[in-house]
Amino acid sequence: MCVAILAVLPRTYAASSETIILPRTYAASSETIILQLIGTISKSVSIVFDSSTIDLGDLTQHTAVDFTIVSNTEYIITTPTTGILTNEYGGTLGFTTATNNGKLTITPNTIGPDQPLGTYSANIEVTISAI
């Protein structure tokens, strides 16, 4: 037999509470970064003669040859102001040089009657240096 007994029970309120999982707080929805770009270009200089050989002809007149300088900074150009041409027998003939506006001019000294015959040659080194 089943018996039901009415008891005075406290009213049970439903636990209708709500639990909220709080979001983790992140950064804002936008962000900006600043990139600083830095680069360095080193000093550089170069010189190139348009021709590797200057033909001075009969050595009675001055002769010029062009050269090209490329530099990204101030520079000093150094050229021997004088030099000596030597022939195959050891004979010599002096010359002077001058540089102007990208030209190297060679001027042989005056040839005297006792100047040995022959083919004369010399090398000239022109130097540019970054300051």
Binding site: S29, S30, E31, T32, I33, I34, L35, Q36, L37, I38, G39, T40, I41, S42, K43, S44, V45, S46, V70, S71, N72, T73, A130
Partner: peptide
């Protein structure tokens, strides 16, 4: 990526500022 640098490009320090923004 730099370009256009040649022997006559002046020696020295070059700078620029780039701003990168991401936004929802």
């Amino acid at each position: 990526t730099p370009s256009g640098i040649d022997g006559s490009t002046d020696a020295g320090t070059y700078t620029d500022t780039v701003t990168v923004t991401v936004a929802a």
